[in-house]
C-alpha cells in the first residue's frame, strides 16, 4: 500500500502581514492560491493542496502556514 498523500487541514494566513507580491500564487504547483480583491493571499482551491509547503517557505512576508494532517 502506498503511503497516503498528506492532506491539508488549513492554510493559516496573516492578512496583515501579506503584501500581495504573488510569489506564492505563481509558484504553487497545484494552483491552490489566489490574491483576493484586496491583493491578499487566499486559499481558493484548498482541496488541491499537496502540502508541499513551498508557498510557506517562499513567502517573504512569513504570512502563510500550511497546516497538514500529521
Amino acid at each position: 500500500m502506498p503511503k497516503n498523500k498528506p492532506k491539508v487541514k488549513e492554510h493559516r494566513i496573516e492578512r496583515d502581514w501579506c503584501k500581495g507580491c504573488g510569489i506564492c500564487v505563481h509558484f504553487c504547483p497545484k494552483n491552490v492560491l489566489d490574491l483576493d480583491n484586496e491583493k491578499k493571499v487566499m486559499a481558493a482551491r484548498p482541496e488541491d493542496c499537496i502540502c508541499c509547503r513551498l508557498c510557506q517557505f517562499r513567502c517573504p512576508d512569513l504570512a502563510i502556514e500550511v497546516v497538514c494532517e500529521d
Binding site: 507580491c21 517557505f57 517562499r58 517573504p60
Partner: peptide, 10 residues
C-alpha cells in the same frame, strides 16, 4: 512587497 530578504529570514 516581493523583497527576497523576508524569504531569507524564513
Amino acid at each position: 512587497p516581493g523583497c527576497g530578504h523576508g524569504t531569507v529570514l524564513n
